[in-house]
């Protein structure tokens, strides 16, 4: 645990202005950083020889609709050398809903950031291929994991026509 603290201290020394908070809960270390410094922090964690966080675990996002900076993007990385895990979090508002992409630092972030974009609508600057990934390309209802998105969707499903199995023509008398 002491060792984990040293990672946080190292980050605070390197980025005194940009590390906003360090929290520890159940042995998980989470570091909140300023949005502008995300890429620099990512690069530092990966390339600094004494840290060596080379394995990307997951990229996730959380929606806090009542707060000023509504969205939180979460990167979790692991260091094979140190056998430690660290979580980097950054916040972004709804108006300028974008953060820097880390797909240049960890290749795996490419797919994971696409999922975040698809589900939460957060854009990533410098992402090579930012498209929807799980939802259909023509999906226009919004972003399903946002808190203001209803559980049953916004009615897109109800617009599909029933087709007769034999003819393929719209069925008579069946309205969605």
């Amino acid at each position: 645990m002491n060792d984990l603290k040293s990672v946080a201290e190292r980050l605070q020394r390197q980025f005194p202005q940009d590390v906003l908070a360090v929290t520890e809960f159940r042995g998980d270390l989470a570091v909140s950083v300023r949005k502008s410094a995300l890429r620099a922090v990512g690069r530092f964690l990966k390339e600094e020889p004494e840290l060596g966080f080379d394995y990307i675990v997951h990229v996730s996002s959380v929606d806090y609709p009542t707060e000023l900076e509504r969205f939180e993007v979460v990167y979790e990385v692991y260091s094979i050398r140190r056998r430690q895990r660290i979580r980097i979090k950054t916040r972004t508002g709804e108006a300028d809903c974008a953060v820097d992409s880390l797909s240049g630092v960890w290749y795996g972030a490419n797919f994971m950031e696409r999922e975040v974009y698809d589900m939460m609508g957060i854009r990533f600057h410098g992402h090579p291929d930012l498209r929807r990934i799980l939802m259909p390309d023509e999906y226009e209802e919004g972003f399903p994991l946002r808190k203001d998105f209803p559980l049953q969707g916004r009615g897109w499903r109800d617009t599909f026509e029933f087709l007769e199995p034999q003819t393929g023509q719209p069925a008579q008398g069946k309205t969605p």
């Binding site: 997951h58 996730s60 290749y107 795996g108 490419n110 797919f111 999922e115 994991l145």
Partner: peptide
């Protein structure tokens, strides 16, 4: 296979993210 759970102190997960290996493998 990982689970990232954010809890706001209620009986439901506030956010639950599944880190599924198959999805990440397909990225490569």
């Amino acid at each position: 296979l990982g689970f990232y759970i954010v809890s706001d102190g209620t009986g439901h997960p506030y956010r639950l993210k599944i880190r599924s290996p198959s999805f990440i493998h397909l990225g490569a």
